[in-house]
């Protein structure tokens, strides 16, 4: 796999699309963590997740992309918006969305990025993945899940049930623990 690495100077169309989508995801993610408005953060998160779904598509993982759109964009973001509403968060610009920890956090984050990027670039400079359309289709993934990954899948369903019950117990005030 490593011997036939095309040059970085002549990107394919898929690569260009991926890089654009990646830049979009990174940019909107930056806006998520820097915006002054809470609701805007949630909305930028939608953009970020959508861009990521596009990335998945380019990487031929189409089923994952649709699930991403459905669950993240459809469910998680809605949940987050409900959370924002229920906690009576201020709508509009607020100056105090950042804690005093910001400078240290920036240092740590930049250092993390530097380390990760350095290591990743150093490690995968010669790795090339030829894209094969249809490899991540719903049929392929479905057979993989239900042939090879059935047991984790079932366990996961139990986990989801437990999380569901837990969320209900935590959020309802008329259920009290045994004293």
């Amino acid at each position: 796999m490593t011997e036939a690495v095309p040059s970085y100077l002549s990107p394919t169309g898929q690569e260009i699309v991926f890089l654009l989508l990646g830049a979009m995801a990174v940019g909107s993610a930056l806006l998520v963590v820097t915006t002054r408005q809470l609701v805007h953060a949630a909305l930028w998160l939608v953009v970020c997740f959508g861009a990521l779904a596009g990335c998945y598509l380019v990487l031929t993982a189409e089923f994952v992309a649709w699930v991403q759109v459905l669950i993240y964009v459809g469910a998680v973001i809605v949940l987050l918006l409900f959370g924002i509403m229920l906690t009576r968060a201020p709508i509009g610009r607020t100056a105090d969305l950042d804690s005093g920890n910001r400078a240290v956090a920036a240092v740590v984050a930049v250092a993390t990025a530097a380390v990760l990027v350095t290591v990743v670039v150093d490690g995968f400079r010669n790795a090339y993945a030829p894209l094969d359309p249809g490899a991540g289709s719903a049929g392929e993934l479905g057979s993989a899940i239900f042939r090879n990954w059935v047991l984790p899948f079932e366990a996961l369903s139990v986990l989801l049930l437990a999380a569901l019950i837990g969320a209900i117990v935590i959020s309802r005030t008329d259920i009290r623990g045994r004293d």
């Binding site: 804690s99 920890n101 240290v104 740590v108 250092a111 993390t112 380390v115």
Partner: peptide, 22 residues
């Protein structure tokens, strides 16, 4: 008591270990 500060310290430590390991 600021949990963020604790996590910051934790991550900085992990980072240092990672750099050391690399």
């Amino acid at each position: 008591g600021n949990a963020q500060l604790y996590v910051t310290g934790l991550l900085a430590g992990v980072l240092l270990i990672a750099v050391g390991a690399v």
